[in-house]
Amino acid sequence: MDPSNATAESDDAPSARVDPARMLELFAQVVERAAADSRFGERLALARTTVLMQLGDSEELMATMIFDRHPVSVRPGLVGDPEIEIRMSPEEFERFWSDGVHPAMAIAEGRITYEGPVRKILRVVPILRRVRATYAELGAERGD
């Protein structure tokens, strides 16, 4: 993966509306809730993979999606040896998480770069979007 590609578009894109660190924190909280929800928990684990997600170039904006077991979780920073790495701008993450833009399209257009079998995590993107919609009140409670 060429890291320079990851943020190439962010110069032209509008700034993220929400602080990226808070977005990652919220993402982890929502996934934690979903993992305990019988509608979503086991199905999210069908991704059967682990993903290092990095927003922009800052190592502080990294999280590891541990989706190879039930319950799934998102932990801050690099955990273990993730099978997949994906890199995107904070704005791109917001487009996915808040606006529901499908990351496959962003990958095709080069706005998200990846290494490894990214297909595995794309499999559960529809569920993550549903999870986000279900737990939208979490963001609202926090004033996000």
Partner: peptide
């Protein structure tokens, strides 16, 4: 057509 480079077949496409 979307053209997404794959290091290994099936990394991206279903």
């Amino acid at each position: 057509a979307m053209q997404v480079p794959e290091r290994n077949p099936g990394d991206f496409w279903s």
